[in-house]
Structures are given as structure tokens and as C-alpha cells.
Design a protein around this nucleic acid. Sequence first.
RNA 1: GCUCGGAUGGUGGAAUUGGUAGACACGUUGGACUUAAAAUCCAAUGACCAUUGCGGUCGUGCGGGUUCAAGUCCCGCUCCGAGUACCA
Length: 960
Amino acid sequence: MSAGNFFPFLNKRIFEHSKKQALMDYDFLQIEKKWQDIWSTKKTFKADNLSDKPKYYILDMFPYPSGAGLHVGHPLGYIGSDIIARFKRHLGFNVLHPQGYDSFGLPAEQYAIQTGQHPSKTTTTNINRYRQQLDRMGFSFDWDREVRTSEPNYYKWTQWIFLKLFDSYYDIEADKAVPVSELILRFKKEGNINVQAYCDKDTPVFSALEWNTFNHEKQQKILLFYRLTYLSETQVNWCPALGTVLANDEIVNGVSERGGYAVTKKRMRQWSMRISAYANRLLLGLDELDWSDSLKEMQRNWIGKSTGASIYFEVENHPEKLEVFTTRPDTIFGVTYMTLAPEHELVSKITNTEQQKAVSDYIALVAQKSDRDRQADAKLISGVFTGAHALHPFTGEPIPIWIGEYVLASYGTGAVMAVPCGDQRDFDFATHFRLPIVNIFDGVDISEGAFTDKGRVKLMNSDFLNGLDYKAALDRVISALESKNSGKGAVNFRLRDAIFSRQRYWGEPIPIYFKGDIPIPLKEEHLPLELPRVEKYLPTEEGMPPLGNAKIWAWDEINEEVVSNDRIDQQFVFPLELNTMPGWAGSSWYFNRYMDAQNQKEWVAPKAMKYWREVDFYMGGSEHATGHLLYSRFWQKVLFDLGYVRTEEYAKKLVNQGMILGNSAFVYRKKGTQTYLSKGIITEHEVEPIRVDVSLVNTHDELNLEGLKNWQKDFQNAEFVLENGKYIVGREVEKMSKSKYNVVNPDEICDTYGADTLRIYEMFLGPIQQDKPWNTAGISGVHNFLKKLWRLFYQKDQWLVNDEVPSPESLKILHQVIKKINDDIERLSFNTCVSTFMIGVNELTALKCSNRAILEPLLILLSPFAPHFCEELWQQLGYTESIEFEPFPVFDPSMVQETIKEYPVSFNGKMRFTIKLSLDMSVEEIKEAIMREQRTLDQIDGATTKKIIVIHGKIINIVF
RNA sequence: GCUCGGAUGGUGGAAUUGGUAGACACGUUGGACUUAAAAUCCAAUGACCAUUGCGGUCGUGCGGGUUCAAGUCCCGCUCCGAGUACCA
């Protein structure tokens, strides 16, 4: 059999390879430059929107181009996705693998505030640097589809989507977003009495007649209560240091995620997105997603669905009703007091004169606290009595109403019915203020604390619920509440509507102008509404957002253009919105734009949308779990409802790459001296560790003292105490960051070892999903592997590749590699792929195998990992076409099978007899063989053979 | 507190469905080549005992269990990481 029969693709090769241009050594710098240039000029990775091939859309989370450039941690995910992209091309897919930049953001703006340099300039500089670094690593991106969220031709469509949201409301009956025009038609016909939609809780009820008598302004105000993006007076997270509001996911531990500044509460008129309308669909949609469990769990917790009941309590001597949400309506007879959030709107209405002062003092005290203080004080119990009483819905008994900090205005109704025997916080509050505690759990001791377990306990002291367990009581009490009209079963979500206004310059302008209070959207044909030039990037002296500094920033309704401030008092000239959109706006739909990135007329042509549909594989960090990954699902669902996209989830498969951590180096200074001790001799001294640049330390943790003295002047006069003539540093794994001097630059690795070595090494470090520290020391093993493989092609100026028929041993090695690589890429186990290659090459080297029929398929297998290396040798083998589109080698089991004739058979670990068997024998045949050896099956328990365990040619067990 | 991960040699990690634990690589030690160095190649490398050859015992955070067989499955803990939190 000739090699050509095993590998049909070998037939088209050109046999005469050119020995003249042969490279003798593995000159990675020259090779990588050469192929990067070829790929770029030939546009090798350009994806076609019209193709007969099946499509495969593989997406990376696009980066924010920061000023620091890339470190070795950033490309990890890109390398993984690039391997899959190249693998899928070998399998015959039309692969879309785009890249772009999430280029609006705070750092460029803060740099502008400090230096006056326009953020677009900073951004362009940073993008160019990123591009250079990305290009060096040989990614197979289709750069013709690049997007930048800060470019007008991109944010034009972000603004367009904003207008779509503005022009939609959520119809609960249809369970989807519907254009507002249909809502207006219904209002005209029947008012809003029967309209079921997600809307503001203060929406008035009106008839068709009333609607038609409302003036335009009133109608618009009502419509704002329904729109999916709406303007409202809300309590926001205000960050004074950044001068802007923040969304919940932009706050970590009570301080701003960026900068770590204090955050307080403030009431402001803000744009919001009605994401809460989609809470249930966002939750249900998770079940269909092939995302990691932890990520889905994070989103579930963030959405925070809880089931229970709404209960309305009458307030003694007041017309208002007090609504609470509870997950434990079954404990209604254990209620001994009520607690409202200090901000609750009823507080001012129901507080009696006696308690007036105490209540207002308490509210003032709470209001001045920052989120962080509030969190820090979480364990302190505080509260005050309002003097008012609620009435128990069943017994009619008065229940004192308190206010307390532990009740949050933003969750549920901002009010709770307190059941001290069934909730630990209520118990603590009751104990602290000596409020009564009633036990309603039969046979449970609650003297030490609340009983929160829902299971296996019967109620007592609970009137008609006595003797019932949790589940039965729940059903009973809800129907009782409903029949009395004092409550109903209810579901509550933790997810809040997303605040969409930012008091920033460097973001998408919101395409809205104002006539008085009424927001008016710009027409589609007037987009993009471009960012104006400003002189200062800070808020104005009147406290308006930075756009207030613009010379030109108003809308002329007659000429339909942006006009200058001087004309603002003219008729039909109206102020434009001065807030901009948040960082997540541009990233919430970019994956759709890649499908048709250069389209000037549409956001995406329907044809392109029909072909690409959705992302097949999304790679990115799990830090976006409750930000980008939630908002983008929300927008996709809106766009789906409105018919602009074809799938409700844009990325069914998502993989989170881990973070590559830095390996910081420390020197140890003896307290109060200029003496630095080597790591091994610090034990008996008091020392303080000081970070030093990791590039000054070699692979054995030895510090380059001369380099250190040049690095920072402080060390020039220092004294160093060595061990064995060397200064050994300490190590600690932490996040890679410039300030920790532990950043490793991929450019340096590319200079020393090449991009292919870097790519393989990053994969070899460990499972792609796992966090792991960077350690440059291990890279030599991977580099040696490439050099070793190179030597199968060249040795001592000799081209070794021959056309001889490969030996069975070498074919076996090849096919073992083919099998493992196919399997392991499929399950994203790139680190074991690398090991497989190393084993294969070691074995082939031992066999001195340089057969073309072995090496060619091997190159194809390796090319997703080391593309430059493989392209170069592929060309030297005589091919003129890129290796990229060669069919991936297919595993042939007959190449690796071996039949062993004689097996020692043991049972329960003890050898019993020897038997002649072949591995492909059926169970029946094996039974016969055992009989032939004059052993009855009874001797081994008399059962039926199901499984023969063979390890290294030895039967160790027969399982029955 | 709750939710989700994780724990394997000196180090990173492998073991896909329960089937020779430690693949592969780094590091270390010894050797070959060399005037020397670099590069390359070879050998050893979980621990302990025996090393005169075979070899033997223990070993995947801890304690139990299931199984002919457990890193893998079940029960109970310890520690580490991530997310989230007065969420009613």
C-alpha cells in the first residue's frame, strides 16, 4: 500500500521541493515576519458572507485598548479561540473570526482631564499598539471586519438600537417587546385598564376618553412609564470622585470598580433600561446555554428570583395600604412588628407627631452614610419606631411599624413583615428593641435564635394554619389572602432596571433632545449624533455633564441639525441630552455588527444575519458575568422580539479562559536599614518585603544586582547579604500589573522564542479555563520541541524528508497522535494536545523517521498551534497553497490495533489460567475460548461475561 | 452566611466512561560530545526499605463507606479560591 492511499490529500502535492531557499536552522523571527506579511497581504483569513461551506462563528471578547499594552495574560483566550478557528478551517468550515476594540471608556477620558489630549487620540495610539502586538502572535483574524465602538460609523448603530428600545414597551400577554405605536392605538381605543405591560408603579389608570383628552405632553409622560428605555427620577449610585453614576455591577464591595472610590446615594433624573421586564426570560434562557455552571449560577443569583406572596396591610387611622413581599407567607401569624426602609414613601405620612423627631434624625443619619459604611455597619442593629400601627389581615390586631436600616428600599417593596421566630434578622432586631417574639413552630425551641428551616415542622399559634406543614400552609394562606383581597401569590426579582446615563464625555451621545420636560428622539436619518469637541472634559461649573462644555450642542428642529449654543434661545432650537451611554452599550451588540461590519446603510444586512445567525463559540473572561454577558443577552432578546435578529441567545456556547497571574519577586530589607537579605537567611531578622522587577530575576530566582541598581536609584547604596554568592528573591503569585513589577511582555517572549513557542507554551501551562501563574522558566521545553521537530526536516544542512513508505511503527505513532489531537481539541484540552505532540515527535526522532507521509499530516495537526512554523515547512515541502485549508487528518483505527494471542487470565487479582484470545473477539467467542480450556464458567461465579478488562496485554479481570 | 469551583511529586500539570497513579514539561543529579562554553544527546528522579539480582511496603487534603478494582462514586470533615450578601 502506498502512502497516498492513506492520505488522499497527498496526491496533489508538488514533489520537487526547492532546496535552494531551504532554511537550515529554525529561524523563527524571519519565518514569523514572512508569514504574517503574507497572511495580511493575501487576506488569507477573510471570511466570506456568501459561501457554500457550513459557517462557524468564533468570537473573542474584544479588548479595551488600555495604555499599558498587552501582557502575556491577555492573549490566552485569543490563542485558544485561534486554535479552534484554524481547526475548523481544516474541517472545511467557513470561519468568521473577527476582532475589534471596546474603545469608549474611563481611562482615556481621565487622561484627557489631566493632559487635555482628546480621548480619540489616546485611543487611536493605544489601538495601534494593541494591533501591533496582536499581529505578532499570528492570530487568524479577519481584520476587514474590525469594529471600534467609539467610531461614529459604529456608534451610529448603538444609537439606533437605543431608539428602538425607546420606541418599544414590554407586552406581558404577548411576552415580548412591541412597538410603542401599538400601545398608543390601544390607549386610544380602550385606555390602559386592560393593558398588561411592564411599567412604572406610579402609572395612572385612564380610559380611552381620558387619554384622548390628555395633551401631548401628558401623553408623552405616560408613555415614558412604558418605554424599554425611559427617563425617570431614581435613586442612583453616585460616585463623587468620578463625577458620575454607576450601575450595580460597576460597584465592588461598596466602592467603584474602577479606582476604588466611595459611592453614595443620590436622586437624579436618569435614563434607565427596563431589563427587569426580561428578568424571567433571562433566567429561563440560561437552561439552554452551554456555559459553565458557575457562570450561569452567577447570573441566576444576580437575577435573584424568589417566590412567595405580596401582602397588603391596612394602616391604623390612615387610608394607605402597606404592601410587603415575603417568601414565607405561611408565617403570617408570627408577625409581631413591621419594618420599612428609611427611604420608604409611607414613612413621612404615617409617623406620628411624638416620633417625628426621632424618625427624621434617624433618616438623616442613614442618608449621609456611604454604601461602604452601610456594609461595614451591617452587623449593628439600628431602627426607630414610627408610632404607627398596621393591622393584621386575619386577626386585625395592631402591629407596630418601625423603620430600620436593614430593610433595603431597592428590594421588594422596601418593607417587610417581621417574623422574629422565623428570620434571624427579625429575631435580632426584636431582641435588641425588646419587641415581642411569638413562636409558631410546634416543638421547636426558639429561645436562642430563629428557626429558618422550611422542612418537617408543623405550625401552631396560627389559627387556621395550625397543624399544617410549610407547603400546605403556603397554599392555604395564599388562597385565604386572595379571597380577602389582602394579598396574592407573587414572584420577586432582585434584578434592577439598569441606569443608562453617565455624566461622562467619552461615550456614545444619547440621540435625544428636549422640549421642556419631554424627551424627543432624533430621527434615524440624523444618526450618528456625533460627539462634539469640548474644551474641558470635567463637568461644567453648574454641575452639568462634560458635554455641557460644548460650544455646539442643541438641536434645530426646522433645519434638523446640531447648532451652536448662541442660537439656543431661538424658536425651534432645543437642548440635546448631555449624558452619554455607559461602557456596556457598545459591547452589547458588537457580535452582530461583525457579520456585516462595513455596511453603511444598515446595522446588519438581513442576508448576512441569515447566514451567520449567531456566535458558535464565544471565548472570554468570567468577570463579565453580571455585566456585559447579561446586558448583551438583554439587548439580543429585545432585537429578537422586534425581528432584527434570528436567535434569542447570541452565544449558546461560552468558554471562560482563566487568568494568567504574575509571579512577583521580592527582596527583603532589614527593618530600618539599607541592608537586603537573601531569601534563605531572613529567618531570624525582622524584614520588609519590597517588590522588584521580575525581569531582573533569572530562572533560578537569582537577582541581577547590577541591573537592580540601574533600575532604581534607592538600591545604589544598599548592602546585599548573599547566600552562596547569590541573592535569591522571594516569590508570590498575584494579579499581573504594572504597579507590581510582575508584567511579562509578549513582545519580549516573541523576540527570544518566537510567537509559535509562546502560543504553544501558553496552552501547555494548564487547562485553558484555569487561573495559573506565569513562569517563563518552563518555556524552553516547548521551544525545544519545535526545534526537535525541525530537525526531522533538517539536520546539519541536510534536507531529510524522503518519499519512502513509512514503517508500521511510525504510522502507529502518527495515528495515535491524530486520534488524541482530534479528541482533545474537541474537548478544549489544549495542554494535553501539546504533550501528545511532544511524545509523537520524541518517538519519531527515536525512529529517525522523516517520511513525507508521516510529517505532512503531522504539520497539518500542529498548524493551529504553531501556524508560522507549519506554513514555512509546508511551503518547503513544495506546496504553494496555505496549509490553513488542508483537510485535517482522519484517524484510522487499523493503524494502531494489535492482536495479542496469549493472555494470562486472572480473577480477583490472582492468576488462574492462560488463554488464547484476540482483542476483537466478541464476548461469546471469549466464553467459548474459556470453555475450550476446560474451564466452565461456573468456576468464575457462574454468571454471564459482560466486560473483559485487559491492561497491557494482560487480562486482569472478567466482570459479570 | 449562601452558591459554585478546587486540593495529585521539588514545580506546572496528565490519568476522557471506576481499570498499571504521576504521562508530558520544568527543575535537580550523573554521563557523552567539546580545549572550554553554548547547543545537542543519553540515564536517573513520589517516599521508604532492600539495593547481591529479583523485589517489597506506603502513597492523589483528612476520616469512613461501596466495589474484584476508587485520584475518580457515596457520606462526614479540613483548608484554599471565586461570586454574592442585612434580598425579607
